[in-house]
C-alpha cells in the first residue's frame, strides 16, 4: 500500500515534469486585460482631477503651480494597480498598460508627471484645459484674452452646433482690441 502510493506520487511528479518557467531569461508577456502600470496620455488629459480624487491609494496629485500650469504627478511606488483611475477618467486619458517589471532603485523611473496648460474661465475663475481640441476652445488659443470687462462681449456657448465653415471664419476673424479709455 505504502509503495503503491509512492509510485502514484512519482507518476504524478514525472508526468508534470519541470514546470518552472525560464523567466526572466525568457520574457513572459502579461495576458490581455492585465492591470499593469497606468500610463497617462497628456494630449487627452484635461486636468479634471477625477483620477486623483478616486485613487484609493491617493497616489495621484494635482497642483496648480500658477494660474496657467497645473501639474499632475503619479507616484507608482504606492500604486495598487487597481485601475480605478482608468475607469473613471472622463477623457480616457489613462490606460492600464501591461508593464509589471517595475522594480527600480530610482523612484523617478516609475513616476509620471504631466504639465497641463490651463486657461482661466472668466466667469467662475477656475482653470480649464487649453490644449483641448474643441472648436470654441481653439478660439481662445489664438491669443485672445479677455482683458477688460467691456471686451467680454463674446460669451462662449456650446460647441455642439459649431460648423467647420464657421471655424474657418474665426481664424481670420479680427478680434476686438483693447478698448481705449
Amino acid at each position: 500500500m505504502w509503495l503503491w502510493n509512492k509510485i502514484k506520487q512519482l507518476a504524478i511528479s514525472f508526468r508534470a515534469g519541470v514546470v518552472t518557467l525560464r523567466y526572466p531569461f525568457e520574457p513572459r508577456p502579461a495576458p490581455e486585460g492585465f492591470r499593469g502600470q497606468p500610463v497617462w496620455d497628456h494630449t487627452k488629459c484635461i486636468g479634471c482631477a477625477g483620477c486623483a480624487s478616486h485613487c484609493p491609494a491617493r497616489t495621484i496629485f494635482l497642483r496648480d503651480i500658477c494660474q496657467e500650469v497645473r501639474i499632475l504627478l503619479y507616484d507608482s511606488s504606492r500604486c495598487t494597480y487597481c485601475g480605478r483611475c482608468a475607469d473613471l477618467c472622463p477623457e480616457k486619458a489613462i490606460t492600464m498598460s501591461d508593464k509589471f517589471e517595475l522594480a527600480t532603485d530610482n523612484r523617478q523611473d516609475i513616476t509620471q508627471s504631466l504639465e497641463l496648460f490651463m486657461m482661466t474661465c472668466q466667469r467662475c475663475g477656475r482653470c480649464y484645459d487649453l490644449e483641448i481640441k474643441n472648436y470654441i476652445d481653439r478660439l481662445s488659443s489664438l491669443g485672445y484674452r479677455y482683458d477688460s470687462l467691456e471686451a467680454r462681449k463674446v460669451i462662449r456657448r456650446s460647441t455642439a452646433d459649431f460648423s467647420p465653415e464657421e471655424l474657418e471664419k474665426t481664424v481670420t476673424y479680427e478680434r476686438p482690441g483693447r478698448l481705449e479709455k
Partner: peptide, 8 residues
C-alpha cells in the same frame, strides 16, 4: 488525492 490520502 488518490495518491496522497492513503499515504501513511
Amino acid at each position: 488525492e488518490k495518491a496522497i490520502l492513503k499515504d501513511r
